[in-house]
């Protein structure tokens, strides 16, 4: 847990020092290009790696009533039997984290009227769902908002997102809610891992590292906007240079900006080789992306081995006499088989 924190701090420090000893172009120009290439290539490689293995069996997890008789109502989304149903299920899964929404918590109710004392109950627990949803959506909005640095003129939809985001009209520069919520959500996700014993026990460095990293990105970003205010126009010129493959020198840019950029690059490069691939992964999940219609439509296994089993003729050969005695119908009567 602390090792990964130190690692993130170290990365930030290296970027900082690098920026101040004149290596800004290494961190500001070379690294972003490398990172984007690694990110895209890595992600493509990862998806090809998954896709290379077939889906031998259709194993959707059914979360409701199947489609069977007319008078029994099917749970069309949680137990889809058509592709359209699967699309709806996946939509809810991806955009609203349907499965996490189901989350229950096993807990003790101290004074249960039925038991006259404590009783275990499994009640719905939405905290994890709530914060992970906030986390992912705010991350997305913050990401979209950053497009104003890469585009000229800034598309109206991005300006619109900004207006909504800053609608509370607090402070100057105006406070963006998404940044704040993102920070809170990351802290919540980190806090669970650290303070919930169960989670702490199962968490690995691979779990803390991305959280610390994102925390680093968010904090440095917030610093850039509200505290150590960066010259936005210069950042924009620099980034436009990057996107148009004619980079300008980043020497004069704020060191925190270089730290921010470096951490983002690390995140991009880390992404395809870590658990963060859950983002594209969820689309591949055979328990979610298949319809529960396996009795109606045959699912084909490309490596289906040949059938080998104890056949009826072998069976009859083994038990023929006894079966004949019991009067069971036979393919070959004993006298015939003896010939």
């Amino acid at each position: 847990m602390f090792a990964s924190l130190i690692l993130v701090l170290l990365m930030g420090a290296i970027a900082w020092v690098g920026a101040s000893i004149g290596l800004a172009s290494l961190f500001g120009v070379v690294l972003p290009y490398v990172a984007v290439v690694v990110f895209i290539a890595g992600l493509v490689w990862r998806m090809v790696y998954w896709a290379k293995s077939p889906v031998p069996f259709a194993i959707p997890t059914t979360g409701g009533q199947e489609a069977s008789l007319d008078f029994i109502k099917q749970a069309k989304i949680d137990c889809p039997s058509t592709t359209w149903g699967v699309v709806k299920r996946m939509f809810l899964e991806v955009f609203f984290f349907r499965s996490l929404f189901r989350n229950t918590l096993a807990e003790v109710r101290e004074n249960d009227p039925v038991n006259n004392g404590p009783r275990s109950i499994y009640y719905s627990s939405k905290w994890l769902w709530c914060f992970s949803l906030l986390f992912h959506y705010c991350f997305l909005l913050v990401f979209i908002r950053h497009f104003r640095f890469f585009m000229e003129p800034v598309p109206s939809c991005i300006t619109f997102v900004e207006t909504i985001d800053g609608i509370m009209q607090i402070g100057a520069p105006r406070f963006f809610m998404t940044g704040g919520i993102l920070l809170v959500a990351v802290l919540f996700l980190l806090g669970r891992r650290i303070f919930n014993q169960r989670l702490r026990y199962l968490s690995l460095a691979n779990d803390y590292f991305p959280l610390w990293l994102i925390l680093g990105v968010v904090v440095s970003g917030i610093c850039l906007r509200y505290f150590d205010k960066t010259e936005i126009s210069q950042v924009k010129i620099f980034l436009m240079g990057l996107t148009h493959f004619s980079p300008v020198s980043p020497e004069h840019l704020n060191a925190i900006f270089i730290v921010h950029l470096t951490l983002v690059c690390v995140l991009l490069m880390y992404f395809p080789f870590s658990k963060l691939v859950h983002a594209p992964g969820v689309f591949f999940s055979p328990t979610r992306n298949l319809a529960n219609n396996t009795r109606r439509v045959r699912h084909v296994n490309p490596w289906n081995p040949p059938k080998q089993f104890f056949t009826y003729p072998e069976y009859e050969d083994a038990y023929r006499d006894a079966m004949a005695e019991a009067g069971l119908p036979l393919e070959k009567q004993p006298e015939k088989a003896a010939e």
């Binding site: 989350n103 199962l202 999940s285």
Partner: peptide, 24 residues
Amino acid sequence: RLEKHRSLKLFMDICVRCGACADK
């Protein structure tokens, strides 16, 4: 098995250890 089952590759890669499954 990894070559034969996409599910296995995927399940090895994408778990984020959120712990939602633990007390289920």
